[in-house]
Amino acid sequence: MATIKIRAKLQGDETTVKALIQHPMDTGQVKDKKTGKLIPAHFIQEVNCELNGTNVMTALWGPAVSKNPYLSFKFKGAKSGDTLKLSWVDNKGESDSIETQVS
């Protein structure tokens, strides 16, 4: 299941990356309304972004990043058609990744 939506847009020599990830980002401090039990923490810890295999950004996240996280950043040095890979890993070891072309 694809959990990531990504767009990488080149303007001049600057690429703007915008990504939306589907993830509950549970903090471990909220109770389930039905059972009254705490919902265990489940959140993304690390997001990695690579351009043609070279790291351009690593985000380290705590549980206080909002549910279904949004992320945007900019970098220089990409050409149209370059491959951008974004991947995430959460505290339960689950992960996902996506590749897109810079356009």
Partner: peptide, 27 residues
Amino acid sequence: AEKNAAPLTAAFKLGKGAEGYVSTRIK
């Protein structure tokens, strides 16, 4: 977020060529 129970929310480590800009949503 200064007054959150655990204040550090996110740390973005920028690689080569990255600009000084990040945007996200926090609790």
